[in-house]
């Protein structure tokens, strides 16, 4: 059985907000390592890989690996019944036809209990090859969200160019064009806002802004985001949390 108690329930609410528009149903794979999820969107253009490590829960117990098939919209509706400061406990039996959720307020005088019906999901697991990326950009997650939103006004795609000087996000559309360049500035006072670039080789890649904007729903989970790129391979957008991560992979756009 699974029993996982999350002191900061708001984290789970934020995680659901970050994935529920990209994918509708997914298996939460529970093991002694923690709770993981991997799913592609319907069009197979983007993939979400989530890990909530066991040490983020107190206590965490999972005797046998379990796959909990969840409709994410339903789960996020139930999670809306939890207060932001509530402690959330997830429980499931080995037969796993329901997921039990308990929300306790911080005064411990209000306890709400919900059960969510689970479903059988035939999901194919994808082997994500270990990749050494040609360019890795680390930047403020809020800045990345702003750039994606701003450029979406102009186009449905963005060209990302990374050189050792900086990273340039450019968009061209019917009404005109726009570009935002962030210079590498590792020694700024505010570490959280620094743009850092590790570069083996300059890259220039095109991606759909609709998906990137969707990924930025993870912004409340981390102040930093990393963009890992190599020519003609999927972009990896990673938000690291205290005990885990949410990674998004996005297939590039190619051709003229």
């Amino acid at each position: 059985m699974l029993e996982a108690r999350l002191q900061t329930g708001a984290l789970l609410k934020k995680v659901l907000e970050a994935i529920k528009e990209l994918i509708t149903d997914a298996n939460f794979d529970c093991s002694d390592n923690g709770i993981a999820l991997q799913a592609m969107d319907n069009s197979h253009v983007a993939l979400v890989a989530l890990l909530l490590r066991h040490d983020g829960f107190e206590p965490y117990r999972c005797d046998r690996s379990l796959a909990l098939g969840v409709n994410l919209v339903s789960l996020s509706k139930v999670l809306r019944c939890a207060g932001n400061d509530d402690i959330i406990t997830l429980k499931a039996d080995d037969t796993a036809d329901v997921l039990s959720l308990t929300f306790e307020n911080t005064d411990n005088d209000r306890i709400s209990e919900y059960e969510l019906k689970l479903m059988d999901i035939d999901s194919e697991h994808l082997g994500i090859p270990d990749t050494t990326y040609e360019a890795v950009v680390q930047m403020s997650s809020a800045e990345f969200a702003r750039i994606c939103k701003d450029l979406q006004v102009l186009s449905d795609s963005v060209q990302i160019d990374v050189t050792k000087e900086g990273v340039k996000f450019g968009a061209k559309g019917e009404l005109g064009s726009g570009a935002v360049t962030l210079k590498q500035n590792g020694n700024v006072d505010k570490e959280e806002e620094a743009t850092l670039i590790e570069l083996q080789q300059n890259v220039s890649l095109n991606f759909s802004l609709k998906y990137l904007v969707n990924f930025t729903k993870a912004t409340p989970l981390a102040s930093r985001v990393s963009l890992s790129m190599s020519s003609e391979v999927p972009l990896l957008v990673e938000y690291k949390m205290e005990a885990g991560y949410i990674r998004y992979y996005l297939a590039p756009k190619i051709g003229e």
């Binding site: 592609m40 253009v45 697991h125 994808l126 795609s157 999927p234 590039p252 756009k253 190619i254 051709g255």
Partner: peptide, 14 residues
């Protein structure tokens, strides 16, 4: 015109 690729060609089904 740019074409949107999919992930299928990059990641192996296991």
């Amino acid at each position: 015109q740019q074409t949107q690729t999919t992930l299928d060609s990059f990641f192996d089904s296991t």
